[in-house]
Design a binder for these strands. Structure first.
Length: 459
RNA sequence: GCGAAUGUGGUGAAGUGGUUAACACAACCGGCUGUGAACCGGUCAUUCGCGGGUUCAACUCCCGUCGUUCGCCCCA
């Protein structure tokens, strides 16, 4: 009997996991630089929370939640997104009374939706995101967009930013009324989904994918014509500021988010050279969630990024061998003698700790030649050979596998050699800018934090 | 929820209604027992996702099932 992972879930192994980790570290680093603090909430919540926040009319809640009754008969759901939980936590802890506003947090963790898996879509997927709770003007919205933008810049991903403005409740209510009036006579000829949306969430008709429906909706009233003067001014202000900041965007009047709580500006970011992957990041401004969940009336803004999609994009842009991580040095004991083997263990221990470099040791290969072959195939730079002679004299044979030169030295001398050639520790320095090497070379000051090379990431 | 494609070793994959299931890569062993190339020799699928049916005979035909992938819906 083979056990498989559940549909829409996967194991992360080897370089895949390394890539996830590297990305996640970078996301966190950027969020911290923008003064966001980490937060973590439970994976399971009362189903009611999502019904209230995400919206009973949304597909996410209607048909995609993992819900079940627990042994006490409570209706529980795996979170389909993080925002509701975070606002709930914010309200529970009464942070609106004690914290400095806006309260800025970032999160990273799995969310679950019961969907048909396909490209860039999983049932358990990782989201990274931020929420800025208690904002009072549109500049806060821009600040969040800039943070989102920086993530893509940092990974050298060409972006396409789509943006729209949903407006206040009154504006939207008026607009929906007008939309329904316009659609009503043509409703019979539209798709079944649209008929349902007409009743439950008319806004969603706008991004219907059916050709005929798109034709019908082409001449529908526009949301922007129903925005209040105040909303229009805010949207104009946002676009002007984006212009001032030289951020490219595309206003997409059909951009409507699937979560019901959004009200002001909404946006999505795509990788410009891979639009078919779908939005890598999406978010927006929402006015009533805090109040709905029992807090005061506070506006917020946030986004969430699909880590799996993000990594999938990076992988599609990378050659596989660029991803191979391997140790810098490989300690090879010669012979089975126990003094030699323990000396080899000591050398490995010394190099991994005191010299602080990535080191592995060949303990289960019988022949030196197979160990050398392994080192060579895996692009390990130094083979460290230790045998009886070396053990007696407390030295090591250091063979540089690139230059093929071999020298006997003691451990301190080897450390000096490593210090001389700083760049040795990063295997791909020579190739220049890699996608996974997330920052510019010129970025001297922060280089250590961002270098893809993990040999000195703790510095 | 709907539609389409697909499922042969660690990987990439040939294959025919009839019996040793190609070939390539990777891995491992040996030639070279203290040193990475190349080369040479050897090992590596009693089994073709799973269950059932047709047949003297099925990896190959039929039905079902499960998985994977892609599209729609929806979304990150």
């Amino acid at each position: 009997m083979d056990y498989q992972t559940l549909k829409g879930t996967h194991d992360l192994i080897g370089v895949d996991m390394e890539l996830y980790e590297a990305c996640e570290e970078e996301f966190k680093t950027i969020a911290k630089k923008f003064s966001y603090m980490p937060i973590s909430t439970p994976t399971i919540e009362m189903s009611e929370l999502f019904l209230r926040s995400v919206g009973g009319g949304s597909d996410i809640v209607r048909k995609e939640m993992y819900s079940f009754l627990d042994k006490g008969g409570r209706n529980i759901s795996l979170r389909p997104e993080h925002t509701a939980s975070i606002i709930r936590a914010f309200v529970n802890a009464k942070l609106y009374a004690t914290a400095h506003l806006p309260y800025k947090v970032y999160y990273l963790g799995p969310a679950f939706r019961y969907e048909r898996p396909q490209k860039g879509r999983l049932r358990e997927f990782i989201q990274f995101g931020v929420e800025s709770i208690g904002v009072s003007n549109v500049e806060e919205d821009i600040d969040v967009i800039l943070l989102a933008y920086e993530i893509f810049l940092s990974f050298h991903i060409p972006t396409k930013l789509k943006i729209n403005y949903l407006g206040s409740d009154e504006s939207r209510a008026n607009y929906m009324e007008a939309l329904k009036v316009y659609v009503a006579p043509k409703l019979d000829s539209m798709c079944a989904d649209c008929k349902e949306r007409y009743e439950k969430n008319p806004l969603r008709m706008l991004d219907c994918k059916v050709k005929e429906d798109q034709e019908i909706l082409k001449d529908a009233p526009k949301l922007k014509d129903y925005l209040s003067e105040e909303d229009k001014a805010k949207f104009r202000r946002i676009l002007n500021m984006l212009d001032n900041l030289s951020i490219d965007y595309e206003v997409d009047e059909n951009l409507v988010r699937g979560l019901d709580y959004y009200s002001g500006v909404v946006f999505e970011i795509y990788a410009e050279d891979n639009l078919s992957l779908g939005a890598l990041l999406a978010g927006g401004h929402y006015d009533h969630l805090v109040e709905q969940l029992g807090g005061p009336s506070l506006s917020s803004v946030g986004f969430s990024l699909g880590v799996d999609r993000f990594v999938m994009y990076l992988k599609s842009e990378m050659k596989l061998d660029e991803l191979a991580f391997s140790p810098l040095a490989y300690v090879i004991p010669i012979g089975e003698d126990e003094t030699v083997r323990s000396y080899a263990l000591f050398v490995r221990y010394y190099l991994s700790t005191i010299a602080s470099i990535e080191t592995d040791i060949a303990l289960n290969t019988k022949s030196v030649s197979s160990a050398m072959k392994y080192a060579s195939k895996n692009k390990i730079k130094y083979a460290i050979l230790v045998g009886e002679e070396e053990e007696k004299e407390r030295i090591i044979q250091v063979k540089d596998l690139e230059s093929q030169s071999q020298r006997a030295m003691n451990l301190e001398q080897f450390c000096e050699l490593l210090d001389e050639g700083e760049h040795h520790c990063c295997h791909h320095d020579d190739e220049g800018e890699e996608h996974h090497c997330c920052h510019d070379e010129e970025d001297e000051e922060n280089h250590a934090h961002h270098c893809c090379c993990h040999h000195h990431k703790d510095e």
